[in-house]
Design a binder for these strands. Structure first.
Lengths: 163, 163
DNA sequence: AGCCAAGACTTGAAGCTTCAAGTCATTGAA
DNA sequence: TTCAATGACTTGAAGCTTCAAGTCTTGGCT
């Protein structure tokens, strides 16, 4: 409880703060920014939708809706993958690149102020390790739960550490 | 970046995992559970709406909508505060109490498995301190941003550490 | 060749959150 | 006393996410 309550508070408040800054200063949500940022780092400013969903930890459905909105705003365009027509590529436009360049400094600044500056050098290292450990547990659990909708966890007979 | 990326991943995936477990096993969202849990810990199983919003880190509007749904499901009821008619009390019903009692073990179990068991004793202590430090920074920043909608952060002329 | 199964999205509807107004009770000033 | 002003919600609409189907392409089987 001692450690869980602060973490629970963190998980609700920090995303809210990041969202508020981006919405106020750039008119986009944190998730929209994150999608643009991931595309800006990709080779050719291009990503398959499924790979982008993976990188942004989102469902394909959510990503599809968001990319449609970003497309309407002129920051992204979509094209079927020339090599394999089953895939769709999301491509950052020039306007999209400029949006990222204009928006990134303010975002980086608030992350630094709210997270990095709140901690000592030592704590930053601890946070990295703790974050990785938890994410490594959560990721397979999330996959397992998506696969077993409607079932109840049986912690007695199921020694699998995943859940 | 080293520490930020794991934290960003944590903030999207851990809430998703908790939500999935509660939705699957109890048919409620994590936020709905949290509201019921806070009420179950309160004296008389009662809280003013504004105090409950504070404790759950949510807006009054969001809480109002959620409590309405919980009321429709019979787990909560609302009554104006006898002492001061401006306030509204949210009160956990007997059925609501039973819902919490039935739901808590599964939720506690998954938090333990995903968070606590992923860490050493030492890391749990570190996480508590890190979480508190960040939340202490984020909370006033969030308040400040709510108050200054539409304005741009000026990091040069504004030495205030809040943002 | 023809078909079917699998994978990769896309879409429409339903549910939840946010935003902007609106309502109601109480306090304080004229 | 009367009447803003404040504070505490509540509500309806708009926007975003999730869920369940539906579409389209490719690879493999016959």
């Amino acid at each position: 409880m001692d450690a869980w309550l602060p973490l629970a508070a963190l998980m609700t408040k920090l995303p809210a703060a990041l969202d508020a800054q981006l919405r106020r200063d750039a008119g986009i949500s944190h998730f929209e920014y994150f999608v643009l940022a991931m595309l800006s780092e990709a080779a050719e400013h291009t990503h398959r939708m499924s790979a982008l969903a993976e990188r942004t930890s989102s469902s394909l459905s959510r990503l599809s809706h968001v990319v449609k909105r970003l497309e309407q705003r002129g920051w992204v365009r979509r094209a079927p993958c020339p090599a394999d027509g089953r895939y769709t590529n999301a491509i950052l436009t020039d306007a999209g690149w400029e949006k990222v360049v204009a928006t990134a400094p303010g975002h980086v600044d608030i992350v630094r102020r709210l997270v990095i500056d709140a901690l000592t050098e030592e704590q930053i290292g601890q946070l990295r390790d703790i974050g990785r450990s938890i994410v490594d547990r959560v990721t397979p659990a999330l996959t397992a739960m998506a696969a077993s909708t409607g079932q109840v966890i049986d912690s007695e007979s199921e020694p699998d550490p995943v859940l």
